[in-house]
């Protein structure tokens, strides 16, 4: 049996003096898992994803990512971890405006110090893969929401990370774009074995995952197979 890729133990998080947002959250994810996170609005899903993404830090508890304890990361070490280990897909796409699709996809590779001779063909290949061969030089504002999210997925894949974190990736999309994005995400997990953690409100999207985690008031209230019972927990 291989090592877990993500191991979270009893994590707490609160903002200021308000009620804690995360309480004693623990979760273990094995490589290649496809996990959906559900829960009411404000239950702490995004806060949890940010901690998983090394964008934010837990107040207490432990988080081991790919065998590395993230408790005392320097900012630069965290940046390297995000660059190599994690691919982010945000609800709001978060592409750089005024930059071509190609530039956006290349950015993680440029940050890693790769020369143009390496990042340019790779960025084209990734855009081909998400069906945007004709859009290399389009700016985000020239693309539909679904196309922008596909650019964002191509960008997330640029450094071949073992983990993809997607916080409501279809939240801003119509149902057609939404199912196209889900088809791509499914295939990443099925064909390339990328560990995928996806936050969603929609049961039919959660149903495509292999494991379901439900949050309520900052606690995990369900962790198991995707079932009707789990959804309504």
């Amino acid at each position: 049996m291989s090592q877990p890729i993500i191991q979270v133990s009893r994590v707490d998080k609160s903002y200021g003096t308000m009620a804690p947002v995360l309480r004693q959250v623990s979760m273990t994810v094995m490589p290649g898992e496809f996990l959906a996170i559900m829960g009411p609005s404000g239950s702490g899903k995004s806060t949890f994803m940010n901690i998983l993404g090394c964008l934010d830090r837990a107040d207490r508890g432990e988080y081991v990512l790919g065998g590395e304890d993230t408790t005392d990361l320097t900012p630069d070490r965290a940046a390297d971890l995000r660059n190599r280990m994690l691919g982010f897909v945000f609800q709001g796409f978060n592409l750089l405006q005024r930059r071509s699709a190609l530039d956006n996809v290349a950015l993680p590779m440029i940050c890693a110090g790769l020369p143009r001779s390496q990042w340019d063909p790779r960025a084209r290949e990734l855009l081909d893969k998400v069906g945007l061969s004709a859009k290399y030089h389009s700016r985000p504002n020239q693309l539909s929401g679904g196309q922008q999210q596909r650019v964002a997925i191509a960008r997330a894949l640029a450094m071949e990370p073992p983990v993809i974190l997607a916080d409501e990736p279809t939240g801003n999309l119509d149902s057609v774009s939404s199912s196209e994005i889900m088809r791509i995400i499914r295939s990443l997990n099925a064909d390339q074995g990328i560990t995928t953690i996806l936050v969603t409100h929609e049961p039919d999207i959660a149903a495509q995952a292999k494991r379901l985690v439900k949050f309520k008031d900052g606690r995990i209230v369900y962790d198991g197979p995707v079932t009707e019972a789990g959804m309504s927990a």
Partner: peptide, 16 residues
């Protein structure tokens, strides 16, 4: 600010 956030999320270091 948001652009800086995106850059940091995908691995830009402080020095960059």
């Amino acid at each position: 600010t948001r652009e800086i956030g995106v850059r940091k999320a995908i691995g830009a270091r402080e020095r960059d």
